[in-house]
């Protein structure tokens, strides 16, 4: 990691702080919340923020909004990480094989990737959910499947640029097998590119997960999730606008943090930005 160039960008530092803050929130959830996120007190339903010991108020079932937001960060971060990992695990080898061997394998794989890219991301996710039902892993598949062609295309074009380089030719001349050339000589050069794309993919994945849950096709109540919290808050917009405000802020801030971090990473790894202050 290029920590120095990262530290030089102010927005990158802000992004990193936000991401770390949300990770801590997710990790320490039981210690920083006073109420159970799924069990409510009906007599305290729709309490406005700051009253009766409820920092951010309560929802229609009297559940503490702060607790639900804190616990909600767990599922959002987990879905984001897992679906990006899915895209990496399947997309990177596919792209590498495609770029390395070229020819017919390459054309066929890239045509298939084009087909997947023709589906708008949320629609592909909806199609998968419609087929496999709703559950953590089917959501990971639904969200991550759209990342697969993105990573595959990225890795393919990066592989092509390294293919003719001397260190690759040297490795081949020394008798290294294809797998070793790809894994030991080409892959380490792609770490920066992949880190940048993974960051942006994770931001997008968290937004898609929230969107699916908002549509009722993602994480199901009573599990606390920001998108589904916003969805149920719609019915109480007039009487309890705070239910709309806070989950959205949480979602926007975590995605903003990840995007800022991604921007800073891109500048740190892109040679065109090197040496310039961002």
């Amino acid at each position: 990691m290029r920590w120095k160039s990262l530290a030089r960008s102010h927005s990158g530092v802000v992004g990193l702080v936000l991401v770390v803050a949300f990770t801590l929130l997710a990790a320490t959830a039981p210690f920083i919340t006073a109420h159970d996120p799924t069990r409510g007190n009906l007599r305290a339903a729709l309490t406005p923020p700051g009253q009766a010991g409820y920092l951010l108020g309560t929802d229609e079932l009297g559940r503490d909004t702060w607790s639900r937001i804190v616990y909600g960060s767990r599922i959002s971060l987990a879905l984001g990480l897992a679906s990006v990992a899915f895209g990496l695990v399947f997309g990177v080898p596919l792209g590498m094989v495609s770029g390395y061997y070229g020819g017919g394998v390459d054309s066929v794989l890239m045509r298939v990737m084009d087909i997947f890219l023709a589906f708008p991301r949320i629609l592909l996710a909806i199609l998968v959910v419609a087929l496999y039902g709703i559950g953590f892993w089917s959501l990971v598949f639904a969200i991550g499947v759209a990342d697969l062609p993105v990573f595959a295309r990225l890795v393919r074009s990066a592989t092509l640029t390294y293919l003719g380089r001397d260190f690759v030719t040297a490795a081949k001349a020394l008798g290294a097998r294809d797998r070793r050339v790809m894994g030991r000589h080409i892959l380490p050069n792609l770490v920066g590119t992949l880190a940048v794309q993974s960051t942006f993919s994770m931001a997008a994945a968290i937004l898609i997960a929230g969107g699916l849950s908002f549509l009722g096709l993602g994480v199901q109540p009573p599990t606390p999730e920001w998108g589904s919290m916003l969805s149920s808050a719609r019915s109480y917009m007039r009487v309890a606008p705070h239910l709309i405000t806070y989950p959205g802020i949480a979602l926007a801030v975590v995605v903003l943090g990840i995007n800022l971090l991604g921007d800073a990473l891109r500048q740190a790894y892109d040679p065109r930005f090197r040496g310039k202050d961002a």
Binding site: G210, G227, L230, M237, I244, G248, L251, L256, N259
Partner: peptide, 18 residues
């Protein structure tokens, strides 16, 4: 612009309705 890309559409829509 970074804020615009980070805010979920469904949230902005609800805020606009509100």
């Amino acid at each position: 612009s970074v804020a615009g890309m980070s805010m979920p559409v469904f949230w902005i829509s609800l805020i606009m309705v509100l």
